Simulated assay, not measured.
Amino acid sequence: MTALPRLFFATAAIFALTGMAWGIHMSASGDHTLAPAHGHLNLLGFVMMSVFGTYYALTPKAAAAGLAKIHYGMSVVTVVTMAPGIALAINGVDEILAKASSVLAILTMLVFLVTILRNRAD
């Protein structure tokens, strides 16, 4: 496995552990108000990053491209802005971070689609 897929998987594990700890905290406190933010952390942070890592592990040519590194950076920024953005929106502070990170999430998935289309199986 090349470095980039390993980076996606390691980052996914960090996000998963963070999400799990947050879930335990919510359970212990009995306050599940931020469950949507917790869910997005797990979905985007663990599932999405793991799917991307799997694709790049199976497609080394795609992992070697410069766009793959940009894709990793966009993915991380998406996760670290989405969960707090949703938490802020739920708490009535502001919705701008949730909205901006939602657009970034779509762009991140668009980069993934472009990557897939550029690296068709022979």
Rank of each mutant, 00 (worst) to 15 (best):
L58D: 03
L43P: 07
T18Y: 04
S75L: 13
T54C: 11
L88A: 11
K69I: 13
N42I: 15
L113R: 08
I116E: 00
S102F: 10
P84M: 06
M20E: 11
N119E: 02
M20N: 12
V93G: 01
S50R: 07
Y56C: 00
L88Y: 10
G85V: 01
L44T: 05
A10S: 15
G85P: 03
L43G: 03
A98L: 13
A35T: 14
V93Y: 08
L88H: 09
I70V: 15
Y55D: 00
R118I: 03
L44G: 02
I70N: 10
P5F: 05
L44E: 05
D94V: 04
A89Q: 07
P60C: 10
A100V: 13
A105M: 06
H32A: 14
R118G: 03
M82N: 07
T2K: 10
G85M: 01
P5D: 05
V79T: 09
T108P: 09
I24R: 14
V80W: 01
A100I: 11
Y55T: 03
T108L: 04
L110R: 00
G53C: 13
H25M: 15
D94Y: 07
N42R: 10
I116Q: 00
P84R: 06
F15S: 03
A16H: 05
S27C: 14
L97R: 07
A16I: 13
L67K: 12
A12W: 09
H38S: 08
T81C: 15
A89M: 15
T78N: 01
V51Y: 09
M48L: 15
T59M: 13
G30L: 09
V93K: 08
A87H: 01
S102Q: 02
S102E: 00
V111E: 04
V76E: 00
L4G: 05
A64D: 12
G23C: 04
A62T: 00
L44H: 00
G23D: 05
A121Q: 15
A12V: 03
R118A: 06
E95T: 14
L107A: 06
H25L: 15
H38K: 04
L17R: 03
T115L: 07
T18V: 09
L43A: 06
T78F: 07
G85Q: 02
E95Y: 12
N119R: 03
H71W: 02
A68T: 04
V114Y: 04
V77D: 01
A100R: 02
N91M: 14
M109Q: 12
R120S: 04
M48W: 11
I70T: 14
H32I: 13
T54D: 09
I70Y: 13
A35K: 12
E95W: 14
V111C: 12
G92T: 05
A21Y: 12
G73S: 11
P36S: 03
I96E: 11
A105H: 01
Y56K: 02
P84I: 02
F8K: 05
A3R: 14
A12T: 02
T11K: 05
